[in-house]
Design a protein around this nucleic acid. Sequence first.
RNA 1: GGAGGGGUGCCCGAGUGGCUAAAGGGGACGGGCUGUAAACCCGUUGGCUAUGCCUACGUUGGUUCGAAUCCAACCCCCUCCA
Length: 417
Amino acid sequence: MTGFQSAFLKTLSERNYIHQCSDPEGLDALLDKETVTAYIGFDCTAKSLHVGSLVQIMMLRHLQRSGHRPIVLMGGGTTRVGDPTGKDESRKMLTADEISDNKAGIRQVFEAFLTFGDGPSDAIMIDNADWLLGLQYVDFLREIGRHVSVNQMIQRDSVRLRLEREQHLSFLEFNYMLLQAYDFVELNRRTGCRLQMGGSDQWGNILSGVDLGRRLGGADLFALTTPLITLASGAKMGKTASGAVWLNADMKSPYEYWQFWRNTEDADVGRFLKLFTELPLDEIARLEALDGSEINEAKKILANEATTMLHGADAAAEASEAARKTFEEGALAEALPTVEVPRADLEAGLGVLAAFVLADLAKSNGEARRQVRGGGLKVNDVAVSDERATLGAGDLTADGVIKLSLGKKRHVLLKAK
RNA sequence: GGAGGGGUGCCCGAGUGGCUAAAGGGGACGGGCUGUAAACCCGUUGGCUAUGCCUACGUUGGUUCGAAUCCAACCCCCUCCA
């Protein structure tokens, strides 16, 4: 899709954010004419979002920078139901308290990417619990249910796949798309919101809302989805050795976040620069054309840009410097993830295996032991050969720490306290 | 409510009395090669105070010298019928 007039769609299109759009010409005209309110919904299933949601977050950012108004819709209500999309099994139910904790954690991330306030293009955050929790069942059925076709609902991928695979789908989950459709209509009533965006897996749910808006009396709503971001090697994006790449700093340190981007596959660098940084396109074109090992420079820029946007320039610089010392000089970097250990334990002698478990580099002594046999553990850059060895105060470096390494990439400092 | 099929390790999936901590595959992790890349090759993949002990094949009991495998009850999923 090319030839957009509106700044927003032009940007999205150039940077490959667009997968599907319900009415590209109509939406383009609308965006070009007036300030448009658009929303993306986020589940509150964890205390933090992870990079899997970053495309959506960036899209809201672009929306705001193009002069429109983003709404972050927190799924405080829908999370109590659970989206069956892409899930093979029902999710455990979250309590109201868990959901509200999660909401608070997620809020922090958006503060970094969007400007909130009362101005015409200031972002707002709304919780669909505000209207969903008070719904009356019979009223809802009469007002909304009459416009919804079960025939269509069971055609949606999220439902169809479960049925085809003969997997359980509860009525509770079946209703998820209905609630999401209702959200769109309700947001339209409350804020004049015209556009819902989301990942490609949300296409069906979003269209349900567009449909419902039309059936209820002519609200002209739009749907726009982003492509599913996978790695060039085919894997899903966002998982690393240490688990999901969370956005909250207390769940994934800026250093690890920087590393995540630094380890991007060659073939993904250009695509990621477009999606996850705001560098000008000609600069990106130059970077992705770098050959062989020179492309590492592009990866560093990607890491710096992405980390700056989330954690700020200081944190990014620190992470970058720590990486330089660790990987390019083989020196000790203070900014590596640090775990404190009581000085008395060290003086008494701490088993190597236990030390790696403590540093969260191994899940159990057994795993640490296997890593020793495979030659994967290092203490102060020296490979561990004896699984019975102990660490003592004598192993502290001049900086007062012990550097533990798993493989070449994961390092943790043990600090006596 | 009735009939039939099914529930195995992170996931898929084999296994129908001892040789089973459970084939095979995927994923993941480590090593090698590299550029902190991909691809490829090799290894590992339940826990522990470890020549042994403990936990594990939906749950709980039972049969047996011995059970993932046999029996009973229960829970859950799927299909068809009412």
